[in-house]
Design a protein around this nucleic acid. Structure first.
Length: 264
DNA sequence: GCGACAG
DNA sequence: ATCTTGTCGC
């Protein structure tokens, strides 16, 4: 298992990110993305695969005083009502510690197992797009956790981060400038890095002044990603991520309060 | 050397 | 990630 306290392993993880980055598609790859057809209109004659109906969310919560124990959760919501139609979680040890810039290496393995399980148990509910708690190409090497999931699983993925991630080359006031832009120029602001728009600061809920940071993970373009996030943002944090966050946190907390072994 | 640092 | 209740506001 990789041990990032070892600088050789860290270098290997950097190399993996550089390889994964080559495989990222920041274009739309599905028909529902191009047409932006969501299951909001009931009497649509389009086939199921041409309409966005199932949106997934994944998140991982850690044990209070043991970073190596975690619960990963996957939820699937159905449009247009955002009803939760699938829930699953895995409690297990996480071998890779948290290191800024390498969240994907830490979280991907458990997420992968969750996706294997829904493919096996309920393939008809497999999400057409996945929202990942973290960043996509808004990342020092253009390979955040949403890119790990998207590229490795070949699933359209969107990164939704709750806090700002500072990239090398940005000024110290970049985040403040973003927020000022939001106040004066509306509800979203481009985040430009090396001349590329790598993400969007987005006020997803009309009630909040605090933005969420959306970036492409894989297999979808940024404008469509924003469209998806807005589709399922009842609150600041979009429902799929919120539900997955809630579920994983509840499980990991109850686990610490119980004496021993009540699993499955 | 020191601080900053998605979750 | 987690430590953490009430509270101010729509």
């Amino acid at each position: 298992m990789p041990d990032p306290s070892n600088s050789d392993d860290l270098q290997e993880m950097r190399q993996e990110q550089n390889l994964l980055r080559q495989c990222i598609s920041t274009c739309n790859t599905r028909l529902w993305q191009t047409t932006r057809q969501a299951a909001s209109d009931l009497n649509s004659k389009e086939p199921e695969w041409a309409i966005l109906r199932f949106i997934g969310g994944v998140d991982l919560s850690c044990h209070k005083d043991d970073q190596t124990k975690a619960c990963a959760a996957l939820v699937v919501l159905r449009l247009p009502d955002l009803e939760v139609v699938y829930k699953d979680f895995i409690v297990d040890d996480v071998t890779v510690p948290y290191i800024p810039g390498f969240l994907g290496a830490r979280e991907y393995p458990l997420i992968s197992r969750l996706l294997d399980r829904i493919r096996d148990k309920s393939p008809e509910l497999f999400p057409q797009v996945l929202l990942v708690d973290g960043n996509g190409i808004l990342h020092p090497r253009g390979c955040g956790s949403a890119c790990y999931v998207g590229v490795k699983e070949k699933v359209p993925c969107i990164g939704v981060a709750k806090t700002f991630f500072h990239l090398p080359g940005w000024s110290d006031t970049f985040e403040d400038d973003l927020r000022k832009t939001l106040i004066s120029h509306g509800d979203s602001a481009d985040m430009v890095h090396d001349g590329r728009v790598v993400g969007k600061a987005l006020i997803a809920s009309k009630k909040s002044t605090n933005p969420v940071f959306v970036s492409v993970g894989h297999g979808i373009d940024l404008e469509t990603a924003v469209w998806v996030v807005l589709l399922c943002s009842k609150y600041r944090v979009s429902e799929p991520v919120r539900q997955a966050d809630q579920l994983s946190r509840q499980i990991i907390n109850n686990l610490s309060k119980l004496p021993l072994g009540t699993l499955c």
